[in-house]
């Protein structure tokens, strides 16, 4: 049995300056469940995403992230629970809601044998927009130079960006992105971060999944960590890292400090030698660093504090092991 300790989204966040999003809700899920045969893909998820919020859904493959997003989008019907998206029910197909949503899915869909511009012009028309909407959308994702290439001739990363352009062409209030940076190289990934930050600055709500924890930490106001269909943690990346008590690593070049000396310093819980460094794991980084400084100075000392990735691995690791 796994025990879940979902941190309610209503946790006061008064001391957090980062969440400036409105109090109005973009998505409200209450007790949502979905089963495929023997697999309980979504096992009673309740959470609230505020308007203007950049909300990350993290979790291992098969955790139920995509199913959860598809239920919010109205592509799948939940077995149980209530779903409110921009104050409306997304299921059955809700034509009043659809123009306010934008979505990019893991498997991108393109009209056959069209160019990037023709594809986007077709998508624009499906939203009742003129073909000229294609130009700005291509520019937004940096594909202006590829506008007249057939979709089939684009690289994987370019197709991914074209799919994102299709999700944004009608300027939706709420954007769902399922692993939008999966096929992108480092530069394209950073470019997309900029696009996403601009969308957030315009007041749009973004719900997205990713396996890049550094990215989630850099972009998300809040993240939900989903394991086997349930939310096991939900908070700002900063507070998740703070609450996890993952030790800070202080690295000293080998030879300046013996492992015995290091082990005796205040706060040090473990000492290892890795890659030319004596690594001190400490829960009280300040005290340990001060002691190291007194002994050998801090010039060549490096520190590595816990990241969202450490917290994620700790949380998902313990959940999947139990």
């Amino acid at each position: 049995m796994t025990t879940t300790h979902a941190i309610e989204s209503s946790t006061p966040s008064s001391e957090e300056p980062i969440v400036e999003a409105g109090t109005e809700s973009a998505v409200v899920l209450d007790g949502v469940r979905k089963r495929y045969g023997d697999v309980q893909a979504v096992d009673g998820i309740s959470l609230t995403i505020r308007r203007g919020e950049f909300f990350g859904i993290l979790g291992p493959n098969g955790a139920g992230k995509t199913t959860l997003i598809e239920i919010m989008e109205g592509l799948r019907q939940a077995d149980a629970g209530t779903i409110q998206v921009l104050g409306m029910s997304p299921w059955p197909r809700n034509v009043a809601l659809l123009p306010r949503l934008g979505l990019q899915t893991q498997k991108s869909a393109f009209f056959a044998r069209l160019t990037a511009r023709e594809h986007l012009a077709t998508v624009a028309a499906l939203y009742g927009l003129p073909a000229t909407a294609a130009g700005p959308a291509l520019k937004l994702v940096g594909l202006t130079g590829e506008a007249d290439k057939r979709v089939g001739d684009l690289s994987g990363g370019q197709r991914q960006r074209l799919a994102i352009a299709g999700a944004l062409i009608h300027e939706p209030e709420l954007v769902f992105l399922d692993e939008p940076t999966a096929a992108l190289d480092t530069q394209a990934r950073r470019d997309l971060w900029q696009v996403l930050r601009e969308l957030k600055a315009q007041g749009r709500t973004i719900v997205y999944t990713t396996h890049h924890l550094d990215e989630a930490e850099a972009l998300c106001d809040r993240v939900a960590i989903v394991v086997t269909g349930a939310v096991i943690a939900l908070d700002t990346p900063h507070r998740l890292v703070g609450a996890a008590h993952v030790p800070t690593r202080v690295m000293v070049p080998v030879g300046q400090l013996s492992t015995d000396q290091a082990g005796a310093l205040p706060g040090v819980i473990r000492v290892t030698v890795e890659g030319g460094s004596v690594v001190l794991e400490t829960t009280t980084a300040g005290a340990t660093l001060a002691a190291v400084g007194d002994l050998i100075g801090l010039d060549e000392v490096q520190t590595r504090t816990a990241t969202l990735e450490d917290v994620y691995l700790e949380l998902t690791g313990s959940e999947t092991r139990s």
Binding site: R93, P99, Y127
Partner: peptide, 11 residues
């Protein structure tokens, strides 16, 4: 190709 899904998500 999920084109129907794309169309389904438009009005």
């Amino acid at each position: 190709d999920d084109i129907l899904r794309l169309i389904r998500m438009t009005p």
